[in-house]
Design a protein around this nucleic acid. Structure first.
Length: 561
RNA sequence: AGCCUCAUAGUGUAAUGGUAACACCACGGAUUCUGAUUCCGUUAUUCUAGGUUCGAAUCCUAGUGAGGCUACCA
């Protein structure tokens, strides 16, 4: 059910929002998508994007909006390159943040002021303990922690020390600012969490202006409040952080009171979604880059030819819940096929060519065949495909000794060349290896555009390419990157279960209309699959490169196997 | 072990105290100048045990199972 404007069924989050609007708690809804610029966006992010931006779009009548905010509070992991790619990917997915592009790093002074406020309230203190000491005193899930002795410091001393942390008087790791909450809390996040750490690092946005940086738990609720976010939607792993989120909202001088709501992240089988692992695949050269068509990154899927409409339909279709399930990749592929089947023009290409000589071609020669660009959609018009007395057909479409239910070519059998004649096989040749090297056939005059004459059994139409005008193309056949359903659980690491056949490259014969296909041009190679002209490698005048988006379903192959 | 969260066909999601449904997958069949598409059909579902109620997937209690939490990451 691909739709350029999918309207999702109400889920529990949309229900909360509808109630807040109905009760007058909020006049409108302001959401946000807050990626950390430390990697490329992937299909999992698409879920968060479609949710938060989708809610803004659905409530546009009330003035709703969705902010794009870069959560760049850790200078060690973040890069400008990622900022640009994220903006591009969000746009490509079909969403627009308008004027509302923000950086958490623009709020550093605000965070600092809030921290000072907490110190003044006696709710935060500078701790001199080392990482190890802090870890030891934190306790564990079964035993309460013990408070650092530094928590006894007075407000003035804390204020002074914190100012000196900011001024750069201390080295990395020497001190931190902590909230004073509850070292015995069963929720580990409440055991005096760190608010600020010292990092003498260059920040992509603020340069060297700061040497103390706020932690996520502290910064995020403040960012949301600062932007007057009404509903802050995040994934399930932040559930335990919500009490802390609310604590900061309640104890800091903030201009609004956002509400955090958690939902389940997207999980796909045969797929890794963790940024760390994606980065590893890129860095170790297991894939060609962040936009490798085998990757679940948005840029990879774009290059693979997955239309944004299909991604949106998929993500909306999987729904929003708190249940942590694993979605079958087949659902995504279905959405891709569903969209492409309607939108992609048809073309012909032969991936594994066998030459066919039409021995009586002169009996009724054609200069070209007229073929519909989309049989179910005549509006897409027709094209003329050159043809002559010698064509290539797919190796699979000829069988020396065909089984009963095989409908295509074999000795003395008939088949139709799509848009052209019905032909009858009159002979074939094999090379030294026993491989079919040539097929001989005759055309049946008078069969172009006509049903098979009496007495002729012709149960299939196959694709072909004219030998004289065929264009060589590099065709990349992508398959799933992993051999196992759950690479995350693979023993010996997920890299050990990479599928060695995830990329096969063949030189194919394609119809001449494909010679100068524009980068990103999507079409269906009839009877084979959906393909897209590669955006990165195809230059005009060079051999065109096509990436396989997704194969067509093939019930014959399934039956045979 | 403590706290938090979740549990509906194989998979994902609906049903908000009143006939358990939709999509994907799988398997059949019809149509087809793509063994695609389209169309029709088949199989199969409320974790367990109690309780409340005329009536429970839904509310309550207990149990079971799964996931998350013990970074100066986000």
């Amino acid at each position: 059910m691909s739709d350029s404007n999918p309207s999702p069924k109400p889920d529990f989050i949309r229900e909360i929002i509808a109630n807040d609007l109905a009760s007058g708690k909020h006049a409108t809804t302001i959401t946000r998508f807050p990626p950390e610029p430390n990697g490329y966006l992937h299909i999992g992010h698409a879920k968060a994007i479609c949710l938060s931006f989708g809610i803004a779009r659905e409530n546009a009548a009330t003035g709703a909006r969705c902010h794009l905010r870069f959560d760049d509070t850790n200078p060690e992991k973040e890069e400008t390159e990622y900022v640009e790619s994220i903006k591009e990917d969000v746009k490509w997915l079909g969403f627009d943040w308008g004027e509302h592009l923000y950086f958490a790093s623009d709020y550093f002074q605000f965070f600092y002021d809030c921290a000072v406020h907490l110190i003044q309230q006696g709710l935060a203190y500078v701790d001199d303990d080392s990482v190890e000491e802090m870890r030891a005193k934190r306790g564990n899930v079964n035993t309460p922690g013990t408070r650092s002795k530094w928590a006894e410091r007075g407000v003035e001393e804390n204020l002074d020390l914190f100012a000196r942390m900011k001024a750069g008087e201390f080295k990395d790791g020497e001190r931190v600012l902590r909230a004073k909450i509850d070292m015995a809390s069963p929720n580990m996040n409440m055991r005096d969490p760190v608010l600020y750490r010292i990092m003498h690092a260059h920040h992509h946005n603020t340069g060297d202006a700061w040497c103390i940086y706020p932690m996520y738990d502290f910064a995020h609720p403040l960012e949301d409040a600062y932007e007057h976010i009404t509903h802050s939607l995040c994934t399930l792993e932040f559930e335990d952080h919500r009490p802390l989120y609310d604590w900061f909202i309640g104890n800091c001088p903030v201009p609004s009171r956002p509400r955090q709501i958690e939902f389940s992240r997207l999980n796909l089988n045969y797929t890794v979604m963790s940024k760390r692992k994606l980065l590893q695949l890129v860095q170790e050269g297991k894939v060609s880059g962040w936009d490798d068509p085998r990757l679940p990154t948005l840029s990879g899927m774009r290059r693979r030819g997955y239309p944004p409409e299909a991604l949106r339909s998929f993500v909306v279709g999987t729904g929003i819940t708190k249940f942590k399930g694993i979605t079958d990749i087949a659902v995504l592929e279905h959405e891709v096929r569903d969209f492409l089947n309607r939108e992609a023009p048809r073309r012909m290409a032969v991936l594994d060519p066998v030459r066919v000589i039409l021995e009586n071609w002169s009996a009724e020669p054609l200069s070209h065949a007229v073929i519909s660009n989309h049989p179910q959609n005549p509006d897409m018009g027709e094209r003329e495909v050159p043809i002559g007395g010698e064509v290539y057909i797919e190796r699979d479409d000829f069988m020396e000794d065909p089984p009963k239910k095989f409908f295509r070519l074999g000795p003395d059998r008939c088949v139709r060349l799509r848009g052209g004649h019905i032909i009858r096989c009159t002979g074939y040749e094999k090379d030294a290896d026993g491989k079919i090297s040539l097929v001989r056939a005759e055309i049946l005059p008078g069969t172009v555009g006509k049903d098979a004459p009496e007495g002729v059994v012709c149960k299939a139409a196959i694709h072909w390419v004219d030998a004289a005008t065929a264009v060589d193309a590099e065709v990349r056949l992508y398959d799933r990157l992993f051999k196992v359903e759950d690479p995350d659980d693979a023993e010996g690491g997920f890299v050990s279960v990479l599928n060695p056949d995830s990329l096969k490259t063949v030189t194919a014969k394609v119809e001449p209309t494909l010679a100068d296909a524009a980068p990103g041009f999507s079409c269906q190679f009839e009877r084979i699959g959906y393909f897209v002209a590669d955006a990165r490698h195809h230059q005009p005048g060079e051999k065109p490169v096509f990436n396989r988006t997704v194969p067509l379903k093939d019930s014959w192959a399934k039956r045979a196997s």
